[in-house]
Design a protein around this nucleic acid. Structure first.
Length: 112
RNA sequence: CGAGUCGGCCGGGUGAUCGCGGCGAAAGUCGAGGAAAGUCCGGACUCCACAGAGCAGGGUGGUGGGUAACGCCCACCCGGGGUGACCCGCGGGAAAGUGCCACAGAGAACAGACCGCCCCGCGCGAGCGGGGUAAGGGUGAAACGGCGGUGUAAGAGACCACCAGCACCCCAGGUGACUGGGGUGGCUCGGCAAACCCCACCCGGAGCAAGACCAAGAAGGGCCUCGGGUCUUCGGACGCGGAGCCCGCGGACGCCGUUCGAGCGCUGCUCGCGCGAGGCGUCCGGGUAGGUCGCACGCCGCAAGGCGAAGGGGGCUGGCAACAGCUCUCGCAGAUGGAUGAUCACCGCCCGCGAGGGCACAGAAUCCGGCUUACAGGCCGGCUCGUCCC
RNA sequence: GGAGGUGUCGCCUAGUCCGGUCUAUGGCGCCCGCCUGCUAAGCGGGUUUCGGGCUUCAACCCGAUCGUGGGUUCAAAUCCCACCACCUCCG
């Protein structure tokens, strides 16, 4: 999954990424991303109470983190990414394709 | 065999690949629950100087025991339900006091006469007036013991026998709640304390965002209002800037105070006991939201090792039991935008003819003991009733 | 993690402390009528919801209902217990 240095860990980083980054939505989630001068890419996740109880929220967060670990390793440049999970994420079978599509679109817009 | 009742336990398994957090130099090793939940109780621990007294306030409420403690658990008593096993009960006090008992009804706690019954007087009569009467009717959730007899104008514990109930006394049993038996008394006394209250016992307050240490910085945050912007379902929502007010840090000035003592002691008052050199007001300046410990077995020791624990399991002893004692042995999640996961295969269970689909409730956040609530499916045992067979 | 608060008609509320005709008060909204040439405003009336009597409609009547479920009481929106949902605060 993601080691601790590849995770966003304070509120300031979250806020900067949400406000200054590009945004791409899919039915089950929204991806915010921005380029960063850090040595490695980082990811953070926002899973609100409307997604489900603690078990479902943890499961969604872990699946997303697993997907992000592969995706960020193959990104062409280092980025900070914040993924906001929407209520359909709890039961979405195509969470992986939604995430990949949203992140690819975000990286395209950052590259241009 | 059928129906029922009570209790205990489990909560998918194995393997492969890729990963995450703690510890470790590495190899490696450990890594969610019976409820981790709700936060309803009780403790440990930390700070408030100590955790003191009285009042106020809050809690508990049959008895005896268990426990670190409890509002929890066990056993027994009483009341109610059930043929029974068994279940349910905030289960002290209503002759300490205050209060309430709507509507209906004559009358609602002091007694009381609407209908009826009886007597007397008046009247031709229907009836009217006065008195007696709580046995009958009616009202109500509740109407001042029950059945029978004596008695009487009619009646009435007015009197009698039996029964129920109350108070007191004696005897027996029990640690006790209480139970059984006998006697005396007045003849009978309503309900509500999850109404105030009285009685007995218990409770100091806050909580790991407690608290301790280190580093950095001298900045901000909140409320309200005005201006303008974006979106709008026209209700409003979300950013930006300015003025004012409040809070926190530093500085300046003024006032009060340093044993004749300001102020403080984190729920209110009084007392007592302390701490105590700063406190209050005005003006000016201006921004950190970091880390380590607490914290995961602890303590002592350089070490070898030793000692200990409200932890799990086994055994023995005591006890009806809850539980306690002794002994052996095992294990120890510790994250902080928060690890404990993902994919696949086989087996197991459920639904479906099949293809196939599904596998409950639910995720540690300082740690324990309880309670309550949620929960697919499964396992084990005790007991009761009914029917049949031996 | 901890500390508190609130649930009453479509919406906002009163009533809860101290139990009783509460078949739940008021406002907004909605419906009907009057007024007007028409509308607005104004005036008058009705309106919690569900089930049943009940049948073509209307009117009327009965029962339940104050977040949910139990309990105390003759009687519960009100008192007690448990649960559910939502909201606020903390350095």
């Amino acid at each position: 999954m993601l080691p601790a240095r590849s995770r966003l860990r304070n509120p300031g980083d979250f806020r900067d990424t949400l406000r200054q980054g590009v945004r791409c939505g899919r039915p089950s989630l929204v991806v915010h991303a921005r380029r960063t001068p850090q040595e490695c890419s980082r990811a953070g996740f926002i899973v609100s109470k409307s997604v489900g109880n603690a078990v479902h929220r943890n499961r969604v967060k872990r699946r997303l983190r697993h997907l992000a670990a592969h995706a960020l390793a193959s990104a062409p440049f280092t980025v900070d990414v914040v993924v906001r999970a929407l209520p359909p994420a709890a039961t979405a079978a195509d969470l992986a394709s939604d995430f990949d599509a949203a992140l690819a679109s975000a990286l395209d817009r950052l590259a241009s």
